[in-house]
Design a protein around this nucleic acid. Structure first.
Length: 420
RNA sequence: GUGGGUGUAGCUCAAUGGUUAGAGCGCUUCCCUGUGGAGGAAGAGGUUGCGCGUUCGAAUCGCGUCACCUACCCCA
């Protein structure tokens, strides 16, 4: 049997309302913060991602869908959105049109990982990128925005974690200090952590090995080695979050995996989605625009995983909207009146009723069963004896009461039944 | 990429190596000539994921492969 590609999923009609629910709220809240939507191609030149995300990261080194097009260009399905947005920002000189660009997106991403709970090879994110300001107010706003969206969706069991990575120079200095501390313990660390020591020392803080955790407990903390500017700005971010009554914890082990982050980083995690607990992550990336060839400028943003959010909503047993019910089902009693039947249903649809009819030439009983299954509120029986006098039967499915009415009063009577 | 678990009807699941692979739900029709929900009856629906092997005989055992679930790495 033909099947969807490994690690991809269809969203069937019975689930689509959940997606619309999430996307509607996301758009509404972004709009209220005056963020403008941006759409970019789902693939880019490979170099864009390898330069911005970092050659050594897992994403670039083993997870990208990369191929050559018919020319000799190496192209890659986007594994994340920030690089594409920044590319578009530079390419279209958005900085010259407006000194501050507040952008959002809802889009598919692609990473060739082993699928598991809350992880797919094609997945969906919504997110924001604010380009053009170094203000910590925006670091805070990004967190507030993400938190507000998740809360508005109905999530309860979520935790905001924040940290500051400092500017590049102070982080580099700290990494040397950390390495010095770890050097004598190197042989005690787990195999994974010994690899991390080479590739990204900061990640050792994330280790799940009991022994590693013990060793890291006494390690020097990044937060104690921040440059003054980052320290001050991190304090401002915390002050705003407190003023806005956003609960958060400072997690000095929160290190984001992409090379371009600096200063504020944050993550929002759920206790309800298995081991892939991060619903949302982001932070500041002040060097990225310059790195990608633009005039130096500031950036801060976040991305949130829609599949994980829907999973969390389901596991929290949050009431999600089901498929909306039908207003009217029109039953055809006399097959010879097919044209009139169809015209009648179309007229109702033009009056904004949600209408279904029988396309399968089924028996009256089968049509009634269908109407019942579709949970329609009103059934119109069309084309019976009373049709000779231009009349139809209208039946209220909740009360089972029905009446014969003139054709031209159909709209009015249906409205009455729907209101009742 | 690594480890563990699982693949049987649309869905949830049965079936000691032995007849024609079953059940519940769902679907279609009928009982009911122009009326839903409850009940009864009948029907449709399967390459037992795929391939190779062991065997007189494989859904069942072995190997391989693919997929799904889950954990690790990492991330949304």
């Amino acid at each position: 049997m033909l099947k969807a590609i490994y690690g991809t999923k269809d969203v069937l009609p019975k689930d689509i309302e959940k997606w619309n629910y999430v996307e509607d709220i996301v758009k509404k809240i972004f709009t209220s913060f005056n963020y403008k939507e941006i759409r970019t191609p789902i693939f880019e030149e490979t170099g864009l991602f390898s330069r911005s995300i970092g050659e050594e990261t897992d994403i670039v080194s083993k997870e990208m869908y990369t191929f050559f097009d018919r020319g000799e260009t190496s192209v890659t399905l986007r594994p994340e959105m920030t690089a594409s947005v920044v590319r578009a920002f530079i390419e279209h000189s958005l900085a010259n049109q407006s000194s501050l660009n507040k952008l959002f997106y809802i889009a598919s991403m692609f990473r060739q990982e082993r699928p598991q709970a809350g992880r797919l090879r094609q997945f969906h994110q919504f997110g924001a990128e604010v380009l053009g300001s170094a203000s910590p107010l925006l670091d805070a706003e990004i967190i507030i925005l993400a938190y507000t969206i998740l809360k508005s969706l109905g999530l309860k069991d979520i935790t905001v974690k924040i940290n500051s990575l400092g500017i590049t120079s102070s982080r580099k200095a700290y990494i040397e200090i950390l390495k010095e501390y770890l050097e004598p313990h190197l042989h005690e660390l787990s195999e994974d952590s010994r690899k991390r020591f080479e590739k990204n020392v900061l990640r050792i803080f994330d280790s799940k090995s009991e022994n590693d955790i013990q060793i890291m407990k006494d390690a020097p903390k990044l937060i104690d080695h921040l440059d003054d500017e980052s320290k001050q700005e991190f304090q401002i971010v915390q002050n705003i979050l407190q003023a806005e009554q956003i609960p958060f914890i400072v997690d000095s082990s929160l290190v984001r995996g992409l090379d371009y982050y600096s200063k504020t980083t944050f993550e929002i995690v759920s206790g309800k989605v298995g081991s892939q607990s991060a619903l949302c992550g982001g932070g500041r990336y002040d060097g990225l625009i310059e790195l990608l060839g633009g005039t130096p400028n500031y950036g801060v943003g976040f991305a949130a995983g829609i599949e994980r959010i829907i999973l969390a909503l389901q596991n929290e047993k949050t009431e999600l909207p089901g498929n909306s019910v039908l207003d009217v089902y029109v039953v055809l009693l006399n097959k010879e009146l097919l044209n009139e039947y169809y015209l009648f249903a179309t007229a109702l649809r033009k009056n904004n009723f949600k209408v279904e009819i029988d396309y399968l030439s089924r028996s009256v009983k089968a049509q009634m069963r269908e109407a019942n299954k579709l949970q329609t509120k009103v059934v119109v029986l069309f084309g019976g004896d009373e049709f000779a006098e231009n009349k139809i039967v209208i039946k209220n499915m909740d009360t089972s009461s029905q009446q014969v009415i003139p054709l031209e009063e159909a709209g009015k009577e249906i409205l009455l039944s729907l209101g009742a």
